[in-house]
Amino acid sequence: MSAADPTIAPASAAANAPSGRHAFGRGLRPWLLLLPVLLFVIGLFVLPLLGILRLSVVGPNGLTLEAYADFFSDPFYLRVLGRTLITALIVTFFCLLLGYPIAYVAARYAGTLGTALLLIVTMSFWTSFLARTYAWMVILGSQGLVANVARVFGWEPPQMLFTGLAANIGMIHILLPFMVLSLFAVMQRIDPNLLRASTGLGATPFQTFRRVFLPLSVPGMINGCALVYIVCLGFYVTPELLGGPKDQMIARLIGSQIEQLLDWQEAATMAAVLLVVTLTIFAVYDYFFGLDRLWRS
């Protein structure tokens, strides 16, 4: 059905057909096409998700918000939550700081340099982040690159691996391509004639950048930051492998709950909190900019 069906409609309905969409569109036909995906997503994604949310509010004596009360009254959990939010902020900030020059040069100077930079960024985007996490273990380990270089200069480095710093560096490295690609998508569309016009009106290169390019690239910055921040909030693998035991983020806490099967309700509550925080950011973004813009990058 799904294969042959769509062609029935384009005659009448195509998005770019001159006369617009057809009255058939209000019938059953779109829903027939949507049925598989709706069944699939609702049955195998939404349902499991609701299952875990339900778990967080059902106690031995029916519905209860006890788990949430526990969560928000326990300073340990609050510290973890706060650390998660702040860590994500730090990582996002550094991604923006490091990502902007790359995206800027790639967008402004097409040619060998721009192409090479883009190639590097796309390659790291697609390279397994486990591979990259592993690389940082090699660099920061006690027998690793940095330590051995330091020893050459007769300096014994402190422990770097399994610290919050290592986790942050790893996350920045892994999320940087997201940021660069978001920025680049927007910068690429900035009309170079605007910059020429600005120079023609007497602006110095820095003024042109500051007054024309930078404001026009703000949408890319917003997209990139939103993306990086959201991914970072729920990041599990890299902090788990690079980070130390003291500075856990909420995702690691959930992970260790699953591994040790300690308390379903507790784990579900933490998951619910993380979910709400994430969705709140999405909602804020949607309110100001519309979610569709985020997907485009």
Binding site: S12, P18, S19, H22
Partner: peptide, 13 residues
């Protein structure tokens, strides 16, 4: 005019 043509062609009812 185009809508009329499309009705003649059979692309619009």
């Amino acid at each position: 005019k185009t809508t009329t043509l499309m009705m003649i062609a059979g692309f619009e009812l």
